[in-house]
Design a protein around this nucleic acid. Structure first.
Lengths: 244, 244
DNA sequence: CGCCTATTTGATCTGATTCAAACAATGTGG
DNA sequence: CCACATTGTTTGAATCAGATCAAATAGGCG
């Protein structure tokens, strides 16, 4: 299926080139990029033909993650992705593919050929926007390292949920404090580097303290401030200011 | 002190724009960039006037790290830097400064104004090289997450030492298996998310198994293969292939 | 030589893992 | 539309890896 979705271009503009004003010519070029879309079932990998095939994938619908496997087969999730994200933008610049992108919920994915993105990136403004996207991803990764390295499990859990809440609300989700988060506790544990059992106990504890509820894929943040406090969450690292 | 070092340009070309062939005109432009150099004592921060001052720092000599502080004051090191690295290249693209760069050993640092780097980056080839540098840093960060999240302390230690050994040998250091690594076990612990005491015990264990020796700032890797095995280290994520 | 910083060792304690099993929810085919 | 299968959540009990506390030892350096 090969389509030219108007709203795909909108997605790209809101997230990938966020912060740069594009000329209408560029906007047209972006809308004209051929995008092959596919649907991927829950828990399935985005088929990694792309490594060789010279495409990047744009998450159009659903929730996805990037993960790496320990040689014992233990999975570590290193990033979560929401609509508008380009989980493998890095492969535009290096053949190095070090993580696998998988669907957490049923996903709609669009493939864009590198040549089209690279042509857009001939404009230094767009190139900067791409770099800025990579920089933000890296900032999230560094905070993730801090979270895994220094915080106890309850704080770690609260921190990640705080981050997801912030990212989802900028995403224009359901309401101010209620987020559709179609992930399992197993996935949360894989992201937090914690056993599933203990992940569950931490969630239960946060629930007991009336900071959140989480059922059937919906996270309600009852007390965002208190949750952030438990997780020592400071959203500065997500704040996204354009360089002078 | 304002200098135009020939070997600074060489450093930049070998690391930052690695893999891209530069025209002699560009090479000249790079050599002509005014670079203000300073010396920084062990354990001191690279003064972060740069945040506002529109400069990136190039590590010319010594060893440095990027770290973040937990709100309780616990330090998590998120990256190590060696000569040729530009620890804060990200601030070229975003004012977001989320980590602090500190000297682990006495360092010589060069400051380069953003305008000069941005002018180089007008060439899509250079822009790509910069992006590739960010991508590689991000790949290291993701592996770091895997290390903290999934591996036990002994493996974690062995993995980091393996990574440092690989990075240092590509750096053309002393010899094939002997690396000048002027860091303390405290710093190593801060990078590994482990207590200093336990970091020491892991190093002792690696020493007991005759995989390494480490004294007075010199790491000797006695059995690189066995060390990599203990750390489940696969250097694929450091392999750095240019995208088609 | 003596101070300061770094490493090393021992003993104790605890947060988190693992194992085991029940329970709830969701989806599927007859 | 219900029975069954599958996947995900919840709880308890035992165990252990690693943290913490305390203190001795060893190196560098002024």
């Amino acid at each position: 299926m090969l389509v030219r979705l108007q709203n795909t271009a909108e997605l790209l503009e809101r997230r990938l080139v966020a912060g740069e004003i594009m000329s209408s010519r560029q906007r047209d070029a972006m809308a004209a990029m051929p995008i092959r879309t596919i649907e991927i079932a829950k828990h399935h990998d985005v088929v990694r033909e792309l490594d060789q095939s010279g495409q990047c994938c744009l998450l159009i619908q659903g929730m996805a993650c990037s993960s790496k496997l320990d040689h014992q087969g233990r999975r570590q999730i290193v990033a979560f992705h929401f609509p508008g994200d380009v989980p493998d933008l890095q492969c535009l610049y290096s053949k190095l593919v070090d993580s696998t992108v998988s669907a957490i919920s049923p996903c709609k994915i669009g493939f864009i050929r590198h040549e089209h993105l690279l042509e857009l990136a001939l404009d230094p403004k767009v190139a900067k926007a791409f770099a800025r996207y990579l920089v933000r991803e890296a900032a999230v990764a560094r905070e993730w390292i801090l979270n895994l390295g220094q915080r106890d499990c309850l704080a770690r859990t609260a921190h990640l949920l705080s981050e997801l809440a912030v990212r989802l609300s900028s995403n224009g989700a359901d309401g101010p404090k209620e987020y559709y988060l179609p992930m399992t506790q197993v996935a949360l544990g894989d992201a937090l580097g914690m056993s599933t059992v203990h992940t569950n106990r931490c969630i239960r504890e946060l629930t007991r303290r009336r900071l959140i509820t989480w059922a059937s894929g919906t996270l309600k943040v009852l007390d965002q401030v208190a949750l952030a406090e438990v997780g020592h969450f400071d959203n500065a690292y997500l704040q996204f200011r354009t360089a002078g």
